[in-house]
Amino acid sequence: MSTRTPQLFTRGVSLWLRQSLYILLALFAIVVDNHFHQLNALRNIVYITLEPLQALANLPSHLTKQVTNLFSNQLALLAENQRLKLELLKTHVLIENQTLLDKKNKELEALIGLKEHGNTSIQLSETLYESHNPFHQKLMIDGGSAQGFKIGSPVLTSEGLIGQVTALFLKSSEVTLVSDKNLSVPIENLRTGYRSFTEGEGLNDLFDVMYVPITSDFKVGDEIVSSGLGGVYPTGIPIGQVISVTKESNSAYFKVRCRANHVLRSGHYLAVLSPILSDELSQQITPLASAPVAQDKKKNNKKKK
């Protein structure tokens, strides 16, 4: 026992210094990562070392999926095949209709001199797992920078928009869902055409439509689709349905709660769209930014005269 005391004492002095240094370092990392997003290289390095462990952790669910695939009923498969063929036929008809509309739309846009929208490419992917974080609504999906995914790419399922790619790794990427508190999507009420934007509730599959004045027309069951303003998300993609519209006392706005269309489970197929590039966006924005200045100059010149 007597030998323990001096050892404790000598370690105790450096302990304060070392631990406060570690705490300061951690605080520094938090600030840098949160405000400047400059620690992605470090995150990538740690993630690469974690990847084999992640594969190991996903093994049980992968195996059960494989086994159920192996023993799935042939009749069920046939029925599904038939259903899919019918759906394909239906979508073919719709697409043919749409190509015609697209063509007409392009002609009309060319006629009135609107800019052409950037072509979006679609890449298919699959969900890997829900991210292990009680604070965020995030999803890890298959495919990353090696597949040409980019940060900001909108991610869709067959039911509609689910979110946006917010972190890229080599072979997987992280999607922040519409229900995450940090993600906002410009939206439109399909019935009335009222435009606003969303904010996630941070709870399962729920989000709010923000700043809806109490005079506006919002009803339970209204379809919410993306409005396409801001250029990140394409126009008219379904996101969710209004489940409650409540007026809070002393507030000029409704609280509009919506449920997202998608259901979070692993094994869903996803479509990752390519985002509109920032230089493309800036090209669209610059003429607008320069126009008012020119007008002001004219006004000034007139005043001088």
Partner: peptide, 9 residues
């Protein structure tokens, strides 16, 4: 990194 939270928390 495993919980994909802010680095350092």
């Amino acid at each position: 990194v495993a919980q994909s939270s802010i680095l350092g928390v």
